[in-house]
Amino acid sequence: MSDTPKIEVRSLRKSFGSNEVLKSISLDVAKGGVVALIGPSGSGKSTLLRCINLLVVPDGGSVRVGDTRFEFGTGARLPDVKTLARFRATTGMVFQHFNLFPHMTTLRNVMEGPVTVRRMPRADAEKLARAQLAKVGLSEKADQYPATLSGGQKQRVAIARALAMEPDVMLFDEATSALDPELVGEVLNVIQQLAAEGMTMVIVTHEIAFAREVADRVVFMRDGVVVEEGPARQVIDTPQEAAMRAFLSHFHRTGALPPATAAS
């Protein structure tokens, strides 16, 4: 059963106006696999991630997550809003800028998906939400509003909110890029814990050391194409392509994860 990938992206194309952002991209993610998408900004990695849960609708190619497959391009009909919504309910996403709902407490943020989308009774949803908040270590913040939390805490709530939908896969869109350096570790810690539990994940990140540590595979993108991909350590330690080497020269590749993770 683990032979068929959990996520399968085939010849995906996307343009914004005359700017071709994705040029026939293919990507497989095994069940329980963790893939890190890295590359310079404007390389199309965030767009690719957003195409996986169809927040961005591709112009061509196909996307399959689990048993649900969508075709795009000439002749293919765009999925209707109900189909899209049902599909997205099975994929969790975490954003760079958290996008927590500021008018709801932390607990209500996490309950919102189960209550509104899955029509779960409030009492059950609350139990589920409290469990997810405990998992990211924020039980005591349940009744606070997002505005009172630090960036790292906000992002952990956002992860709990996505997990409360009990998704098959998790997508992380530069989840630590908006954080102060000292808060990065606590978020990476949670992601690493999810990886250890066998969650299928695609992570867009600039944390090269983290990608090397946590991801099974690394995909390096530039200008809308995959330049190099392979097992994480191999690709990062011994990059084959000149572009990849040039990109990696800006980072410390090895070394420990940020302090919070190293300490735990």
Partner: peptide, 25 residues
Amino acid sequence: RGQSEAGAALGMTPRQTMTRIVLPQ
């Protein structure tokens, strides 16, 4: 825009996103 994106990513329909997330704010 991130607010409606977050709603959509949870699996809300555009209508649910409007009534639950965008309008109250």
